[in-house]
Design a protein around this nucleic acid. Structure first.
Ligand SMILES: [Mn+2]
Ligand SMILES: [Mn+2]
Ligand SMILES: [Mn+2]
Ligand SMILES: [Mn+2]
Lengths: 225, 225
DNA sequence: AAGAATATTTAGGTTAGTCTAAAAAATGTT
DNA sequence: AACATTTTTTAGACTAACCTAAATATTCTT
């Protein structure tokens, strides 16, 4: 027997996706204010929505205690994440968008409802494992491969790795990386970390540059040697 | 100077598209009830929306007199139609959907807002002139080529033509055509029209069959000889 | 352990888009 | 022209998703 598919509103989907991301990031109960700031809404609106999601068994919510996704909530969130990332792949690979242009459009496309559509899109793209920002794409069962990566800031001086992900995939940050000629797949060597402000001297195959501690926190490297 | 782009809600876009289609079909003021039945809502809801669209200068509306699109309203409707039909092309040509499976998904995709997206999609599809149901696709300026066609019902007995469009592109009707092995591009000859019930005997390259008057009204042929 | 500061919830309101029921206008019929 | 029928509009209500302001709970500081 297959569970009949239930539809959720765009607002509900956005809250679930947001709670999922915050759970991943913090690993514990997610607070009302944290959700409010991420979703750019007011705490009172969040409280309203948490009650609704709780009534639908998508989250476990007790007053003043924060929320957690239920199994059902996580599945739903992952379906939205899968759609978001697949559409981002489509936009970059098939329509020649730049990696800094796709997020807003994917925010809309992720709410299109059709399982057949998303599975056909997945096949059309040849079942990509990561999106244009290096984030893993859940398969139709919600499973994904999370590759082990290290923040540039946590690298040992002299070590190097391949740039495989960014924590912040907002337009401005990605445009900054474009300007500095940094892209996913680049080999990066950490030359030095300034003790005073944690800024990092790095070297790529083509150039050297200094990045701020803030930037160094947002770049993930793989295959450290 | 370029007119700044104004966003409309999905509901507003759906009403505009509906009014556009009814204007095309009837060539005069569109009535409240007609809109209500097409959009599957109540006449009172339509009246509410007409007031709103009128306030935004998208339609000309006078109580009890029906509505007409303004220039601005028609442009907006055509933008939605363009998106709907381009997405239908994408679904059929790139994702291997059948022509009877795409309408519902396109109803969702037509509301995705991004001019760049739709122009890139248009280019990716090599600027198609018609959608999978034979309907013309407006270009980015709202212009489209409307090819002259004749309903099967209006053909002279013995004449023939190429099936280039269907009036009804609902799933059930298209599935009926699939079952009867009729597809766009097929050459069809009208063998006889039964005077009693207007049913039509037709012949294709591969078979002969009888279609009801209802079906004969919904099939358009081009290139009659 | 009390008071201050912060976080969260509640109460009450707004808007978009829908609905039903009733009123009013337009149209059709004798 | 009067009455009946149909169409359209108005009035009033509902829900989802948001808001502000006020109340309450929790957490931090001394
Ligand atoms: Mn994104
Ligand atoms: Mn991404
Ligand atoms: Mn369609
Ligand atoms: Mn179509």
């Amino acid at each position: 027997m297959q569970s009949s598919i239930v539809l959720y509103s765009q607002a509900e989907e956005n809250y679930l996706k947001c709670i999922y991301a915050l759970e991943m990031e913090h690993g514990e109960e997610v607070s009302t204010n944290l959700i409010a700031s991420k979703i750019k809404t007011k705490a009172s609106s969040v409280t309203d929505m948490l009650k609704k999601l709780s009534a639908k068994n998508l989250v476990v919510y007790k007053k003043y205690q924060g929320v957690r996704l239920t199994e059902r909530g996580r599945e739903t969130a992952l379906r939205v994440v899968r759609k978001h990332r697949l559409w981002e792949c489509f936009l970059v690979q098939k329509l020649d968008f730049k990696w800094d242009e796709v997020h807003e459009i994917a925010e809309q496309l992720e709410h299109i409802e059709s399982d057949l559509l998303i599975d056909k899109l997945d096949a059309f793209l040849r079942f990509p494992k990561t999106d244009p920002h290096g984030d893993p794409i859940p398969d139709k069962h919600g499973r994904m491969v999370i590759s082990k990566t290290v923040r540039v800031l946590d690298m040992r001086i002299g070590s190097s790795g391949i740039l495989t992900g960014v924590k912040d995939s907002s337009g401005p940050f990605l445009k900054y990386l474009n300007k500095k000629n940094l892209a996913l797949g680049d080999k990066i060597k950490v030359i030095d970390i300034e003790p005073y402000d944690q800024s990092v001297h790095i070297e790529t195959r083509t150039h050297r540059l200094v990045i701020s501690n803030n930037v160094a926190e947002n770049l993930y490297l793989r295959n450290v040697k």
